[in-house]
């Protein structure tokens, strides 16, 4: 799904002008940073609805902007990645805005907030990765066969949301490019998630001072909902909303419920920054 024509695309040069980060900005309302999941950044009914309430600023993870696929090779470590995002958010003059992070984007949001506690005013996180327990293994979506993905990501693997994602376009060239972009996006984000999506975040979570709202699907088969309690237990100020009949791909399968849960948290009266 293409971004609407009035979406602003802005590329900021960071990391001593060595890395370019592309932001898509859309909608009207207070600023909201959106950090996308491992599958990449594309427009969706969820973002369309969210953009009715916020001015969304969504950076492409380096390497997932179709124009700049090799930016990923310039980033050697998670530490560099966090600093690059921090520079990019400040370059966009977005410091102090709330953030919504989805899955991998949720982990990234928490890493940023742990390193720079004033960077976000609030964090709404959709089933973030970042903690891993041997007795509650998280499925390896990077190595999963394609046929396993619907059941891994959706509460209803045969439902319309799953079909909309996994039905290839009729044009084989478009289908090839879309599949390549999806695989590449999972690969470049996987650079910081392999072999297990746990890079010490739990030990840093106590540094997060902004309020955190964890939104989780009761039927999440990728990251079991038990992890919501583990995150909340390690954070200073966290609450959990558990969504019934929802899987891991929350923004695709349960968009309206996510927005209903997140709105009062992200834009409480008088708390928003940069109200248009």
């Amino acid at each position: 799904m293409d971004f609407p024509a009035d979406t602003d695309t802005r590329t900021v040069s960071v990391w001593n002008d060595k890395v370019e980060v592309t932001f898509r900005s859309l909608g009207r309302g207070p600023d909201l940073i959106y950090l996308h999941p491992a599958a990449g950044l594309g427009h969706s009914p969820f973002l369309a609805e969210l953009s009715k309430h916020f001015r969304i600023h969504a950076p492409h993870f380096p390497g997932t902007d179709p124009e700049r696929p090799r930016e990923i090779h310039k980033i050697g470590s998670l530490w560099d990645l966090v600093l690059i995002y921090e520079e990019a958010i400040r370059a966009m003059d977005l410091a102090g805005a709330p953030v919504m992070g989805e899955s991998f984007g949720g982990m990234l949001s928490l890493e940023l907030a742990a390193n720079f506690p004033d960077l976000f005013s609030r964090l709404a996180l959709l089933a973030p990765v970042g903690i891993w327990r041997e007795d509650i293994p998280i499925a390896n979506w990077i190595a999963a066969p394609p046929e396993a993905m619907p059941a891994m990501l959706f509460a209803d693997p045969a439902g319309p949301a799953a079909k909309a994602i996994f039905t290839p376009p009729d044009d084989p060239d478009v289908a090839a490019d879309q599949t390549a972009a999806l695989v590449w996006s999972i690969g470049v984000t996987g650079k910081f998630l392999w072999p297990l999506p746990e890079k010490g975040l739990e030990s840093r979570l106590h540094r997060v001072t902004a309020p955190v709202h964890l939104i989780w699907g009761n039927e999440d088969r990728l990251i079991p909902i038990t992890y919501a309690d583990l995150f909340a237990g390690a954070l200073k100020d966290a609450k959990i909303t558990r969504l019934p009949d929802a899987g891991h791909a929350l923004s695709f399968e349960s968009g309206p419920a996510v927005i209903e849960a997140a709105l009062p948290f992200l834009a409480p009266a008088g708390a928003a920054r940069g109200v248009a």
Binding site: P69, R70, I142, A180, V183, W184, G187, K191
Partner: peptide, 11 residues
């Protein structure tokens, strides 16, 4: 595995 072949190779 995703990430092992760059995007042009995937295309």
């Amino acid at each position: 595995l995703p990430g092992g072949i760059d995007i042009r190779g995937l295309e």
